[in-house]
Simulated assay, not measured.
Amino acid sequence: MNDDEDTLGWLGLPTPLQMYRQHCRLLENEIQELNLQLRKARADVFGISQMLLETQTKNIEFAGYLRERGAEAAVMRKQIADLTTSANVSRREADELRRIFNEMRPRPTTIV
């Protein structure tokens, strides 16, 4: 007969079997909680990966849009350069015509 086990009941202390069962329940609860956290983490990772795919798709679309706008900007820069060149040529021609006209105009003579 074990005196320690006989006194455990009236001292209010749990028996080793009761302690093992309690520890087992605690471990089961912890495992259930960890499984819930794992499911949530997996769902979060799936959501983040979906967001990444959507972002990459939008990035590809936006890159195409930027390429189109870049091509349009290049065409406009070429047009601006052509118009600037044309305006410079026209300005030089106008200056030359003014010079010729001024040379052809009679000069007033001053009488002294």
Rank of each mutant, 00 (worst) to 15 (best):
E54K: 07
L17M: 06
D6F: 11
M104F: 08
L38Q: 13
P16F: 03
D6C: 05
M1K: 02
L66A: 08
I111R: 06
A81S: 06
M76V: 10
S86M: 06
S49R: 11
I31R: 12
D95W: 06
Q18V: 05
R91H: 12
L26G: 15
G12K: 03
R92S: 15
Q79A: 07
V45T: 09
I60S: 11
I48T: 11
N29D: 12
V89D: 03
L52G: 03
N29I: 08
F46T: 15
G47F: 02
S49Y: 06
G9F: 08
K58I: 00
T84A: 11
Q79H: 09
L17G: 11
A43L: 05
T85D: 14
A73S: 02
L13M: 07
G9A: 12
A63R: 03
P16S: 00
L8P: 02
N29W: 09
L26D: 13
A94G: 01
E68R: 04
Q18A: 15
P106W: 03
Y20G: 09
N59D: 05
P14H: 00
I31C: 06
I111S: 04
Q22L: 10
V89K: 08
L52H: 08
Q18N: 00
R25Y: 14
I48S: 07
E5D: 10
E28S: 11
D44Y: 00
I48C: 06
A94L: 14
R67K: 12
L13F: 11
R77V: 14
T7K: 07
M1D: 04
Q22A: 14
R105K: 15
T55F: 01
